[in-house]
């Protein structure tokens, strides 16, 4: 379980995350949605101890992220940030192998190599495994980063807009992959999403942020509603029931 209590962050005088209290149960897929600048990425970075918080605490499976040794947490929780720039020149295999660092400290064993191969296959990168990252398309690179996080094989996986740059078919297969790892392997997946319909069809739980605050949370049925979405985004929405899923249109 991830317990976020009273977490705040400000830059200068602007409060960008304002006393968020939230608890995310173990297992299942949670989506965080909300307008640009709502504080989603900031909150996620604080949960993953990448950003110090000004107030509050985050506890993951009883471990306070600000105190626990980074090494221990790295075997429980992993994160993929929204933007990933690398100075280093690496191949796909090299990058994915770093996912095993928390276990093997830079000396991958045979078992680690298996993990790497599996993660590469899951993300359909088998043909690209020896390419350098700067020789890949944006979507291919994004998949390589996701493969690295999968390879870290932690109980909790946080993704900040994992569908960035992905085409529709790869978005669908990535969502299925993450949902399956939540369902079948008992992983806890938390992701920031902008696509309401992916959030609606694949999430067990949706968290809505607005203006740095926790605005609402609930199941897709609770959240994906015309009046609620319109209020969150300030845009007209229509919500349809299709094959048991709630689909929002907004054009």
């Amino acid at each position: 379980m991830i317990e976020v209590s009273g977490v705040s962050k400000s830059y200068g005088k602007t409060l960008v995350v304002d006393g968020v209290t939230l608890s995310l149960p173990k297992g299942g897929l949670t989506s965080i949605i909300g307008p640009n600048g709502a504080g989603k990425s900031t909150l996620m970075s604080m949960i993953a101890r990448l950003l110090p918080m000004d107030a509050g605490s985050v506890v993951v499976d009883g471990l306070d992220v600000t105190n626990v040794s980074g090494d221990v947490l790295a075997r429980r929780l992993s994160i993929l940030r929204q933007d990933n720039h690398l100075t280093a020149r690496l191949t796909v295999t090299d990058l994915v192998t770093f996912g095993r660092y928390p276990y093997s400290k830079g000396r991958p064993t045979l078992e680690d190599r298996d993990h790497v191969e599996r993660a590469i296959d899951y993300l359909g990168l088998a043909d690209l495994r020896h390419r350098f990252l700067d020789e890949l398309s944006g979507g291919q690179r994004q998949r390589a980063f996701v493969a690295m996080v999968l390879c870290q094989d932690t109980d909790y996986m946080l993704f900040d807009e994992p569908l960035n740059n992905l085409d529709i078919s790869h978005s669908v297969s990535m969502m299925k992959l993450l949902r399956d790892s939540a369902r079948d392997l008992g992983k806890t997946v938390v992701m920031v999403l902008h696509d309401i319909n992916f959030a609606s069809c694949y999430s067990d739980h949706i968290v809505v942020m607005r203006d740095g605050r926790l605005f609402l949370q609930g199941t897709p049925t609770d959240i994906v509603r015309q009046e609620i979405l319109s209020e969150i985004y300030g845009t007209e929405f229509r919500v349809h029931e299709l094959d048991g899923n709630r689909i929002a249109t907004f054009y």
Binding site: V72, R75, I79, R81, T87, A88, G99, Y101, Q152
Partner: peptide, 11 residues
Amino acid sequence: ALGRDMAISLG
């Protein structure tokens, strides 16, 4: 060399 954020998240 992966940068601060990745280094931290790798422990």
